[in-house]
Design a protein around this nucleic acid. Structure first.
Lengths: 140, 140
DNA sequence: AATTATCTTGCAACATAGTTGCAAAATAAT
DNA sequence: ATTATTTTGCAACTATGTTGCAAGATAATT
């Protein structure tokens, strides 16, 4: 398996195991976010449910993945870019869900706009999920 | 029970039943959003789980309530203002979750800002959930 | 107001999602 | 190579959500 993958695991002080390598690989070789179920029944693979839960949890804690809330109440996971360490996430980007192909992607270069709040309200974190049609599906 | 409540139900072509009246009353006499669990184990009441699910579903379909996605993967429900009919929702407002008191509220007068998207992407719906501290908790 | 038709409730049974404890296996440290 | 630590996978469990159906409640009809 790819060297880059074990490097990421080691850098985050996680033992390099087969499941972790395979699951991390799914994210690296995939655009878009994945849900727990996507991973559990991935073509050609069969991961134990519990292992998937624990692996995703560990990856989120370490800042390798971040979660994306969706309207239909299913959590999706996506790779964090560079600077999330030890659970201090800085994923201030917009998430886009295409209603045609169903893919969820991180729009990393599209910054969260300023949001007006009532007096004395303090914002710590702003989640934006845009639902629509992506470039690819628009053309077809 | 309040006349206003049976009026709302009748206006939406729903039979006026005890559970529906009581559950709708919870929303009318409560600021903030409620989750399924909040309703099921409401002080002094015990609603059947299935009834709560079906009631919430019916209310959302009719446009009496709308759902709010949350980061922790639990759906919350809140009253729609006036103009949602027959499932055509127009709740283009920001949702605010206070990390101190845990309350979720609809900021009805705070409009969703324009969001920049990549070329050829089309936005149909934009969900914004702001996490922070509300006015009330800030003062205490 | 009584009867009939329609809708809603609540139970049972089931399906899916997520968690915990623990012994065996794998990885890391010595 | 041996020991210590971590991770895995199974079983058992809790929580969450769904469906079918008979009994009960509400609405419509006469």
């Amino acid at each position: 398996m790819d060297n880059r993958i074990s490097d990421i695991l080691r850098r985050n002080r996680l033992s390099v195991t087969e499941s972790r390598q395979k699951i991390l690989n799914l994210f690296l070789s995939n655009t878009g976010a994945l849900a727990h179920a996507d991973i559990e029944h991935k073509a050609g693979e069969r991961f134990d449910r519990v292992t998937v839960y624990r692996t995703l949890q560990a990856f989120v804690e370490k800042g390798i993945l971040h979660t994306i809330p969706t309207a239909d109440n299913s959590i999706k996971y996506a790779l964090c870019k560079n600077d999330c360490f030890e659970g201090h996430h800085h994923d201030n980007h917009i998430h886009f869900v295409c209603s045609k192909c169903g893919k969820t992607e991180c729009l990393d270069d599209f910054i969260i706009p300023a949001v007006k709040l009532p007096k004395n309200y303090i914002a710590n974190n702003i989640e934006i999920v845009v639902n629509g049609v992506c470039n690819n599906c628009r053309k077809n």
